[in-house]
Simulated assay, not measured.
Amino acid sequence: MFSPHGPSLRELCVQALSSVERGYDLLAPKFDHTPFRTPAGILDATVHTLSGPALSGPAPSGPAPFGSGLDVCCGTGAGMTVLRRLCRGPVTGVDFSAGMLAQAREAHPDATWVRADARALPFADGFDLAVTFGALGHFLPGERPALFAGVHRALRPGGLFVIGLGTPAPVSSVWYWATLGFDVAMRVRNAVWRPPFVMYYRTTPLAALSEDLAAAGFLVRIVTATPSEGAGGLLILARKPGPAA
């Protein structure tokens, strides 16, 4: 399904009837051959934007404006392409799926990989930049405060947390109704089947995310991600107060 190297329909059904962790362990070897992987256009647009004037406050000069970097809910490591281009120091990925981390480690052997629940991140004041792509739908609204508090704690004063988002689909688009239908189907599935598989596209409106980030102590901006080529999206820039390193 999706491509000759992607998962079959049967494999996707088995994944969907598993827990989130077990489902991604099963999907991991073929994940990069599915549409679930963060599009290269969003990754490129993130780098292009963060290398320019969208940064609040004075930005260090040079091709790598940040020190150390953290990819939150890293999956197979797509976000590492962003951290590698923006960070001059060590980079780390964290995820709770051992299968996804194994794929990430194989693709980026010189990065540090940590298995942990993103709602209880085991870091403190260690990073200048944190990013996450395509993962917020796995967290119920009530779980976001713990997630954002952990990222805030992981960043040094002045550090930046970047959430990459696609461009919101208009009500008239097929994608809008497809994501709505997907969320309804997942809610029905979780009402009748255990363990639950939390993945909702429509539980992360910008206003709610901004409020939760502000409550965690971040200074929040929303900017348009400007790609060097291809499609872009939106970026939430959440700055931990303090002088940047």
Rank of each mutant, 00 (worst) to 15 (best):
Gly52Ala: 15
Ala40Glu: 12
Asp44Cys: 05
Leu101Thr: 11
Gly67Gln: 10
Phe66Lys: 10
His48Pro: 06
Ile42Gly: 04
Pro58Asn: 05
Cys87Gln: 00
Ala102Leu: 14
Ser51Glu: 06
Ser68Pro: 09
Gly52Trp: 07
Gly41Arg: 11
Gly79His: 12
Gly57Tyr: 04
Pro58Val: 14
Ala102Gln: 14
Cys74Thr: 13
Arg88Thr: 06
Thr46Tyr: 04
Thr76Tyr: 11
Leu50Lys: 04
Pro63Lys: 08
Thr81Arg: 15
Pro90Trp: 11
Ala40Phe: 09
His48Met: 08
Pro63Phe: 08
Ser51Cys: 13
Thr76Ser: 15
Val72Asp: 03
Ala40Arg: 14
Gly57Leu: 04
Pro60Cys: 06
Asp71Val: 01
Thr46Ile: 04
Ala45Gln: 07
Leu101Gly: 09
Arg84Met: 06
Pro39Asp: 02
Ser56Pro: 08
Val82Tyr: 00
Leu83Tyr: 01
Cys74Val: 00
Thr49Gln: 09
Ala54Lys: 10
Val91Gln: 10
Ala54Phe: 09
Pro53Ala: 11
Gly52Glu: 09
Pro58Gln: 12
Ala54Trp: 11
Leu83Cys: 01
Pro90Val: 09
Val91Asn: 09
Ala78Asp: 15
Thr49Tyr: 07
Pro39Tyr: 01
Val91Arg: 13
Ser68Thr: 11
Gly79Val: 09
Pro60Asp: 14
Asp71Thr: 01
Pro90Ala: 15
Val47His: 02
Val47Arg: 07
Gly79Asn: 10
